[in-house]
């Protein structure tokens, strides 16, 4: 596949209270960002286990964004801290199995930060576009 034609598919895990609300706010403010994001709503970023992240890559996602409340603002007090701890281990693991760790991003996006949400999707889409297709995507790679 020609890299210029490559449209990455990005899975975005958004917590219901902050990141998902910010995504809605980006919409009500009519901020425009690339149409590459496929959102999965979860109640808390703390719900996003290693298995779900890996499953997203195994299924073929070119990038995975996990977005939750800012530290100290978690609707469930400290669910987002579990998430950030998980990332410490998850990034090197991805590298070890041949998935560039840059394909996984964690962002804290508060409910009032619609513009940060839009900007995150813009910059992450560009990062992932630069990395090219996920090597595990069997169908796209004709495997």
């Amino acid at each position: 596949m020609n890299r210029d034609d490559f449209e990455p598919v990005i899975i975005g895990f958004c917590c219901n209270w902050c990141a998902y609300a910010a995504a809605d706010l980006a919409g009500t403010s009519r901020m425009q960002y690339p149409a590459n994001l496929r959102t999965v709503r979860v109640m808390c970023s703390g719900r996003v286990s290693e298995i779900l992240i890996f499953k997203a890559f195994a299924a073929g996602a070119d990038g995975v964004l996990v977005a939750g409340c800012h530290p100290g603002d978690c609707h469930y007090m400290k669910g987002n801290l579990s998430t950030s701890r998980r990332f410490v281990a998850m990034k090197p693991f991805l590298g070890a199995v041949g998935i560039q760790p840059e394909r996984l991003r964690l962002e804290w996006i508060g409910a009032s930060e619609g513009s940060k949400f839009a900007e995150t999707v813009r910059s992450f889409t560009e990062t992932v576009r630069g990395l090219g297709p996920n090597p595990l995507n069997r169908r796209r790679n004709g495997l």
């Binding site: 598919v9 899975i11 496929r38 999965v40 979860v42 109640m43 719900r47 286990s49 298995i51 779900l52 499953k55 997203a56 299924a59 073929g60 996602a61 995507n137 169908r139 796209r140």
Partner: peptide, 17 residues
């Protein structure tokens, strides 16, 4: 996690492909 079970979320993750 009721209503956000692993099976449910995993099915969502595979659906784009």
């Amino acid at each position: 996690m009721n209503h956000f079970r692993n099976e449910e979320i995993m099915a969502q993750l595979e659906a784009p492909w």
